[in-house]
Write a protein that binds this DNA or RNA. Sequence first.
RNA 1: GCCGCCUUAGCUCAGUUGGUUAGAGCACUAGAUUGUGGAUCUAGGGGUCCCCCGUUCAAACCGGGGAGGCGGUACCA
Length: 493
Amino acid sequence: MKLIAPRLPRGFEDRAQKDIAAITEMTARIRQVYERYGFDPVETPFFEYTETLGKFLPDTDRPNVGVFSLQDDDEQWMSLRYDLTAPLARYFAENFDRLPKPFRSYRQGYVFRNEKPGPGRFRQFMQFDADTVGAPGPEADAEMCMMMADTMDALGLEGQYLVKVNNRKVLDGVLELIGLGAADPEKSLTVLRAIDKLDRLGLEGVSELLGAGRKDESGDFTKGAGLLPDAIHRVLGYVGLKGEGESFFAGLEALVEGSARGLEGVAELRAMAALFAAAGYGADRVRIDPAVVRGLEYYTGPVFEVELTFRVTNEKGQDVVFGSVGGGGRYDGLVSRFRSEPVPATGFSIGVSRLAHALKLTGNLESADPVGPVVVLVLDKDQTARYGEIVSRLRRAGIRAEMFMGQTKNFGKQVAYADKRNSPAVIIEGTDERARGIVQIKDLIAGKEAAKAIADNAEWKAERPGQFECRDDEIIARLSALPAIHAHLQSQK
RNA sequence: GCCGCCUUAGCUCAGUUGGUUAGAGCACUAGAUUGUGGAUCUAGGGGUCCCCCGUUCAAACCGGGGAGGCGGUACCA
């Protein structure tokens, strides 16, 4: 029979105990922040009808290649969700009559994208979103930005991130003034993409992309937008605008003077900035940045993203381009696919998997090995009922415990198993002990410590470091007194 | 999609101008010790040298094609 190579599909990850513990811890902290802000949980399924996600290819009845899709038994196209926003829009529209408006909710879960994976980019990854549906004002947008900042703080990243805020209307205004926008959607997209790359390419790179095009280090040539020098100059002036306060906004206004939409965007940014300042969120945490574009489709007003300000290096020591770990914005049009009345909405998403990947690479996600169960050794195969009784007693007392169930009768192998599980202790009851009404408790942690002084194996065995005996009715009390078990019992309360 | 680097044991990697039976460290298994983890010592298992085609008396090594991995770039709801 031909064996099958066990292999993980690319872009997917297995998660073992430590990874799961880290993700659990991260999501608990995120959840705490969102709940403090007054958001409630909602969960939707992995699958939606493809039309719900709006991901059919234009002019065909096939779903977009970027989504994992299948047809169910009545030939309807279904897709794995590729974000948590489209499902929320469906949920809100479907339950419109009974939901409070504004509707403030959060959701956490895996999403799927059928794309080429990269560093920190997976085909299945976790997002943690919060959205406010039915609140039109900049207060809701500003709240999202501040909550993002608080979330990063809660994850222990104070001073190591920046929430950057912009407004699509301002971008639209700039495009309008160089004669693009609705007049030439294709070229407008190219310009927006170029702006989005300011971080990586700097002003010169962006300038090339706005003009003829750019050849990058890897030898790939990207065709530019073909703007005239005058227009390039104007866009660069906009993109390079920095600072804060009145002079900054006045500068922005001057740049979009003549575009009503642009000015509206600046006014919204002003309002948000005032809210940040009043709430005590300085430019070291939340900052207006004209180069923020975010995805190209559904955002209609404020957009924001959070990025890490420290360097990330992978296992091979290569510097890795990491990009943002979260983002969002206002999407007033998304619910209107389901309902005719206008429904304003704003929200953001934290890329939990991406963030976890970055933190893992930088060593910020390290945690101690979790403490394993107490292992009751099986010395006499005909006494498993007796050993099982001890295990049950430990479990009732809240102590993680198990009977050894492997194939070996070898005593040493059983202890080695417990050691590998990082068990705090094993319980030993052989014929002698049973006759005397006692058991041996071997404290593996203390034993490990004591063993450092012993080099000789014979001595090590004779010494039995960490081992003591106790009466059967003292087992719980003696085990509970061991530091590792004591700590675990405390944490359960 | 495009560009670069990479692919030999479970992992990290050596491998002489192309020359017999392809190696090391770690890990794993067993024994020294049939009732005691670690350390030490001894032994052992484990390989389609990524795949296919070609050159050659002879290919892990040379040539061509392909696949996979990593990174960059493009795209990204």
